[in-house]
């Protein structure tokens, strides 16, 4: 079998796997953004309780490997509570909590990076705290955050491959299955790697365009 024949035969399966990878990443990241926003707001709260919850959450997410987090959710918690959830559900939970933890730190950093003079200027004009946050702070924080957020998106897209171990047949798992049949390790991993690379590349091109579009330096 030539490389081209192998490629032709494998492509439909690999595209199915890529599809699941993208769905898994997209759903997880959408939830992770919400978790990240809520957690970052908790982290900046005046009150100690939400701040502590955020602190514990981020410490656990940062301090343990994603693989362990996935196992813990899929086998640990389900075993303890004696419930069954699908591998996809477990994957989404693990990835969204993981990315959510990192995103909350990115958002908090972005908001705190806005010059304090901006808030002072807005308040001195009579804007309320809420108007200042939404009209002045958030729009600037988003611009500051974009590169780091896109970075986290790239990481999470690739981290879906780690989640394959709990039995999700996404791109990496499909690659393993094809190799088990064909023994063409070099070629298959080359193709799988290229597929991840293309997705990430397209995302970064888009991100660079958006970043330029909203840039404040002109």
């Amino acid at each position: 079998m030539t490389f081209f024949e192998l490629f032709q035969q494998s492509l439909p399966l690999l595209l199915d796997g890529l599809g699941l990878t993208l769905v898994l990443a997209f759903v997880s990241l959408a939830i992770a953004m919400v978790i990240g926003i809520i957690a970052s707001l908790m982290g900046m709260s005046k009150h100690i309780v939400p701040r502590t919850i955020n602190n514990v959450f981020v410490t656990i997410i940062r301090g343990t490997p994603l693989l362990v987090q996935g196992f813990f959710i899929y086998f640990g918690i389900t075993g303890l509570l004696n419930v069954r959830i699908s591998a996809f559900m477990a994957g989404v939970i693990a990835l969204s909590l993981n990315a959510g933890g990192y995103l909350s730190e990115i958002f908090r950093g972005g908001i705190q990076a806005v010059d304090p003079g901006q808030r002072e200027a807005a308040r001195s004009l009579g804007l309320s705290a809420r108007q200042t946050t939404w009209r002045i702070i958030i729009p600037q924080a988003i611009r500051i955050c974009i590169p780091s957020v896109v970075n986290q998106w790239c990481i999470t897209i690739k981290d879906t491959s780690i989640i394959s171990v709990i039995g999700l047949v996404e791109l990496t798992k499909v690659g393993q299955q094809i190799i088990a049949r064909t023994y063409r390790s070099f070629e298959v991993w080359l193709i799988v790697g290229a597929m991840y690379l293309i997705v990430i590349y397209l995302l970064t091109v888009l991100a660079r365009y958006v970043e330029k579009k909203v840039s404040l330096d002109d």
């Binding site: 901006q118 200027a121 001195s124």
Partner: peptide
Amino acid sequence: DELREDVGMVFQQFNLFP
């Protein structure tokens, strides 16, 4: 907020909204 509306302030670092 209403009271501040009647007091304008100009800062050393301008603090325009970029």
